[in-house]
Computed example of a mutant assay.
Amino acid sequence: MPVIKHNPSELFPQYRCYSHATEIRGDSRLLIISGLNGYLKDGQTMPESFEDQAEIIWTHIQSILRSANMELHHLVSLRTYLAGPEYDEANVKMRVKFLGTHEPASTVICCQLLDPRWKLEVEAMAAT
């Protein structure tokens, strides 16, 4: 079963021992997307607002999906890490904006994130 890494050039540089996503191919395909944050392509610039970070993250998710010839409707699971519960409503609005009526399995966790600038981080899985 082939394992393919997806690291589109539109995203920020990879961390050490990290791929933005890993796809497992067989009779079906499973794409596992690493936790993404709101860094722009330079890997250093990040807007301050939750909404702007979320827009960037959803753009990153779409870039990775395209690199695997998938779309948002292929998402089967989302895991969102919020820096605090005050971001919950804004997070729901972003999911509705990008997913519409699509309803992948989803978990939202509030926790301290690695960088204090991060308002959220999102992991995803997609399948065909």
Rank of each mutant, 00 (worst) to 15 (best):
N69K: 14
G35I: 05
S63V: 08
I32W: 02
D42C: 00
I32D: 04
I32L: 15
L82T: 00
L40Y: 03
E55N: 13
T22A: 12
Q53P: 04
D52R: 13
R66E: 15
H60V: 01
Y39N: 07
Q53T: 06
H73C: 14
T59W: 12
L72R: 11
P47S: 05
L82V: 03
E55G: 06
T59S: 14
I33A: 03
T45E: 05
G26E: 14
Y81P: 07
Y81R: 12
R29C: 11
T59A: 13
T22L: 15
R66G: 10
R66T: 10
Y81K: 09
I24M: 13
R79I: 14
L75I: 10
S28G: 15
P47G: 04
D52K: 12
H20M: 08
K41N: 08
S49M: 05
G35V: 07
L31S: 06
M70V: 02
V76C: 15
G35T: 08
D42L: 01
S19G: 11
E55Q: 13
Q53V: 04
D52V: 08
N69M: 09
I64M: 05
R66M: 08
I32V: 15
S34K: 05
S67A: 05
E51H: 13
I64Q: 02
Q62P: 11
R79M: 12
R29M: 12
T59N: 14
R66K: 12
M70E: 00
R25W: 14
I33F: 02
W58Q: 08
H74A: 12
L30G: 04
A83Y: 09
G26V: 10
L82D: 05
L78T: 03
I64G: 01
R25K: 14
S34D: 07
V76M: 13
Q44F: 10
I64L: 00
T45A: 07
T59I: 09
S34V: 01
E71K: 13
S19V: 08
H60N: 08
S67C: 04
Y39Q: 07
L72F: 14
L75A: 00
A83N: 10
N69P: 04
I32N: 04
I32Q: 01
I32C: 10
G38I: 03
E51S: 14
T22N: 10
H60I: 05
S63H: 10
G38L: 02
I57R: 03
L36W: 04
I56F: 03
M46P: 00
H20Q: 00
S19P: 06
R29N: 13
G38P: 00
H60K: 08
R29Y: 08
T45M: 00
T80F: 09
L65C: 02
E71M: 10
R79Y: 10
W58N: 03
V76F: 09
W58S: 04
L75P: 04
N37L: 12
R66I: 11
E55I: 06
A21P: 00
L36A: 07
E23T: 13
I56D: 02
V76T: 15
I56N: 02
I57K: 01
H20Y: 06
T22D: 09
H74C: 09
P47E: 01
H74T: 09
S77F: 14
S63R: 09
R25N: 14
L78F: 05
S77H: 12
L40I: 02
V76Y: 07
I61N: 02
I56L: 07
L72H: 11
H60S: 08
D52E: 15
V76H: 11
H60R: 05
S67W: 02
Q53L: 07
S77W: 15
